Computed example of a mutant assay.
Amino acid sequence: MPRERPERTALKTPLVIIDENRLAHTFLTSLGNPVEAPKPTLVLLYGPPGAGKAHLIRSVVAHWQRCGPPFDWTRTTARGFAQEFREALNSRQTDRFARRHSDCDVLVCEDLHQLAGKQEAQWQLLHCIDDLLRRKRRVLLTARVPPGQLHRFLPKVVNRIHGGHCLPVSLPSYAGRLLFLRLLASSLQIALPADVADLLARPLGTSLRDLTEQLRRLDAASRRANVPITRELTLSTLDSLASEPLPSLPRIAQAVSAEFGVPVEELRSQSRVRKLVRSRQVAIYLSRVLGQQPYSKIASYFGLNHHSTAVHSVRRVEKLVQSDPVLRSHIANAETALRSH
């Protein structure tokens, strides 16, 4: 596999920082250029497919290159690593294979979980990691799960990863998806109406990869037809949005109930206890932005006297999520629960 060079790391899609990738981005950028700040560093970014782990790493590597002297880095996938290793074994060129993956300043290996059950390849990767760390180099890994959930892996490999920095990168919440779309559209100079951004952001489980692809498809369709991006163009271009199943009010109430630790019955009552008020507002907010339910139906389900109270709840949560990371976390967890059912 050819060595990556600085000129090959230009990114067509800009990196957008949201809550779900902020911790990993902050840590990686703090490491600085590997030549100027040599230090043995092992990092694992873990999270579901499409969360942007690989894109984040490539963006940070490009940032390191812009901010310091040039360096060599090698990027591979775990499946590619295992395949190359088998070929090296068959051709008796394992030393050359090891040098190609160890004689660099930064080694990036994506989708580590793909090495499950491949013990020889795991041993070889472990040797490469140890060699790089011994020479104060960097190893950046991605996987779908944290090290403790890497099944059919050698204990030494799992322990070595545990000894590094393991950082989560999760799928974005509705607020995160909306912010991502707005920032990405701005970076790509795409005029994205608010109602279209909302339409794209609503479906549960939509990844950053999905959103990026959808935005590019919309932009291409808009240019071909020489028309602006509209809700109608979006629905005709992205058929999947029209058939996306919406979470029901009972499902949303159950998810919020579990997240805040309050019974559904109390969530639907008129109690003014502070904890119940906030959790009820979140349930109403999710019922509107994800369930796309009319305010009158939401008000009736949650025992409100008038639909204007539901409108107020949605606006209140929209304002609070801008400055309250704890509330954003609660909402993201409730969305995760809705995705899993």
Rank of each mutant, 00 (worst) to 15 (best):
T26S: 11
R66C: 01
Q189R: 13
P325W: 07
T212H: 00
G205I: 03
R5W: 11
R144Y: 12
R274M: 08
V43I: 05
S243Y: 14
L192P: 02
E110F: 00
A88M: 06
Y295F: 13
I252L: 09
S323L: 12
W73M: 10
P294C: 01
N333S: 15
L181R: 00
S236Y: 06
V157I: 14
V227F: 00
H165Y: 15
L184A: 02
C67T: 11
K39A: 12
R278L: 08
E244R: 12
L215T: 03
A191C: 09
P247A: 05
P228I: 02
E20P: 03
R217T: 10
V326R: 12
P49W: 05
I129Y: 06
R99Y: 10
L15P: 02
A332R: 15
L132G: 01
L171Y: 01
T206K: 11
R3M: 14
A201K: 06
S300Y: 13
R22Y: 03
L181M: 05
S240A: 12
R278P: 01
S300K: 15
Q270P: 02
D103Y: 06
R272E: 06
A201Q: 06
Q281S: 07
K156E: 15
Q124P: 10
L238T: 07
R278Q: 07
R5V: 13
L183V: 08
S170F: 09
D239M: 11
T309P: 04
C166W: 07
A253P: 08
L171F: 01
H113W: 10
F27I: 11
Q122C: 04
Q281H: 09
D95P: 05
